[in-house]
């Protein structure tokens, strides 16, 4: 089914003694982004990647390459790539459901990539019975199989007429929220302050459909490339819009100050648009992460999957 799309994986979905033929299709991908090549500025030619010995700088042909695991700085245990491959069990092409868990218990922090899971022509009846049973019981399924050269766990859940299988990150790749927030001061907000915040939330309640949110950097990049190709004048550096500082926080801080009347006078500087970038702790934290990630933005990409 799903004609016109290329399946990432084909196999069987098995629950109990029932199995049906299924296929996985990439549900989210960045492969439609503009792709760039690395060019030698001085000649305008593309660059090629070659592999050389780190010490001697001589080229190392493919057959002379092997794998190594670093035990000490600069010390390696050589491991034959075949031995590594042997550690990957042969795929039985079967997503076997090991357990059903209540949807409310799913820890989404483990989510990696989503795939649309669809039945093949033969498997339709079992597939839709599973879909509807899971919907009614409000559960998601945990299944495992060899997928993309790794034994992976996927979370399967009903979605519309189909199922979505999300690959999950491994336990050692995820820091639990419990652990991350361990050091947080135990503040419980109650009473007037909570009411006030709830009131503010109620004035900002709305809906948000991520489907309508597009990548404006990508659009600007496409425009830039177009202008360059056509030899047109380049888009002017945009006048940057500066967001207002966080109204909610400011309002809450102000009210927090009022509630603590009598306590030490509020000496915090007034937050205005002018000092928006001076920042509180949260702002600093966001800045660090954003600038770290900034370098990876428009690098040439290979297709996902």
């Amino acid at each position: 089914m799903a004609s016109g799309h290329r399946a990432q994986w084909k196999g069987f979905l098995k629950f109990g003694e029932v199995s049906c033929g299924v296929a996985l299709y990439t549900a989210a991908s960045t492969s439609e982004r503009l792709t760039f090549n690395t060019i030698n500025k001085t000649t305008g030619n593309r660059v090629n990647r070659v592999f050389i010995d780190g010490e001697t700088e001589d080229p190392v042909p493919k057959e002379m390459q092997t794998k190594g695991f670093e035990i000490d700085n600069g010390q390696y245990i050589i491991i034959d790539p075949e031995e590594i491959a042997a550690a990957v069990p042969e795929s039985n092409k079967t997503l076997e459901i090991e357990a059903f868990i209540p949807c409310s218990e799913v820890d989404d922090v483990y989510f990696d990539k989503p795939y649309y899971l669809t039945p093949d022509k033969m498997g339709g009846d079992a597939f839709i019975a599973l879909r509807d049973g899971m919907k009614k019981s409000k559960v998601a399924a945990i299944a495992r199989t060899v997928l993309f050269r790794r034994m992976r766990t996927v979370l399967i859940r009903p979605h519309g007429k189909g199922l979505i299988a999300t690959t999950l990150n491994f336990d050692y790749e995820v820091r639990s929220s419990k652990k991350a927030f361990e050091e947080m001061p135990k503040l419980k907000i109650e009473g007037e302050m909570l009411d006030l915040a709830k009131h503010i939330i109620s004035t900002k309640k709305g809906e948000f459909d991520p489907a309508t949110f597009d990548d404006r950097y990508e659009a600007a990049l496409a425009e830039l490339v177009k202008a360059k190709i056509e030899g047109k004048s380049l888009p002017k550096p945009k006048k940057v819009e500066v967001s207002k500082p966080n109204d909610l926080l400011a309002a809450l801080r102000e009210s927090a100050g009022l509630l603590k009347a009598g306590a030490a006078k509020d000496t915090k500087p007034k937050r205005t648009a002018a000092n928006a970038n001076q920042g509180s702790g949260r702002q600093r934290a966001a800045r660090g992460a954003a600038s770290k990630a900034a370098s990876s933005g428009a690098a040439p990409r290979r297709k996902a999957g």
């Binding site: 690395t38 030698n40 660059v47 090629n48 990647r49 070659v50 592999f51 050389i52 010995d53 780190g54 010490e55 001697t56 190392v60 002379m64 390459q65 092997t66 794998k67 190594g68 695991f69 670093e70 390696y76 050589i78 491991i79 590594i84």
Partner: peptide, 17 residues
Amino acid sequence: FYTLNKETGNRVVSQYI
């Protein structure tokens, strides 16, 4: 895992040409 040169045991690095 890193890629090593079988002959020398050194790391193999990539270079752009």
